[in-house]
């Protein structure tokens, strides 16, 4: 696409999208948001970039094969689910680690896994579709 505004703007917007996606991912714990919507927003950033600069450039910008990102995300989500076996609780029960004001949990790990899985899956689909056109 030969639009000067888009190709200049896309660089900044992609960065902004990624930052915002992280914000949504972390905010998702107690408010609307979460891994799924975060992954969508992050992927949307790179999709926009691929419109502006082409799929090859977008693939280079992602650096890793999006399919691998998706699969690693799924692996992370499964590991988060398996972790509750250590505490002999039901599968996918959340485990918590409270460090002063900071509350960490396997739920967050699961959410990050979902984020990566969605991010990878969407980019795989969109890049593949754009390449066939």
């Amino acid at each position: 696409m030969n639009s000067l505004i888009l190709s200049v703007g896309a660089r900044f917007l992609t960065a902004l999208f990624l930052l915002f996606s992280l914000f949504v991912l972390l905010r998702g714990h107690n408010s609307p948001g979460g891994g799924f919507i975060g992954g969508l927003i992050g992927a949307a950033g790179f999709v926009l970039y691929s419109f502006a600069a082409g799929v090859d450039a977008a693939r280079r910008a992602v650096r890793v094969d999006p399919r691998a990102i998706g699969v690693w995300g799924m692996a992370l989500a499964i590991i988060a689910g398996l972790a509750s076996a250590l505490a002999s609780l039901d599968p996918f029960t959340g485990l918590w680690l409270i460090l002063a004001d900071l509350a960490l949990s396997t739920v967050l790990v699961f959410d990050i896994g979902v984020y990566l899985a969605v991010f990878g899956a969407i980019l795989t689909l969109v890049f593949a579709l754009e390449e066939t056109l």
């Binding site: 579709l129 066939t132 056109l133």
Partner: peptide, 13 residues
Amino acid sequence: FGLFAFALALTIQ
């Protein structure tokens, strides 16, 4: 969405 994306790719193919 996933199913539709697949069906679309299949249609192109």
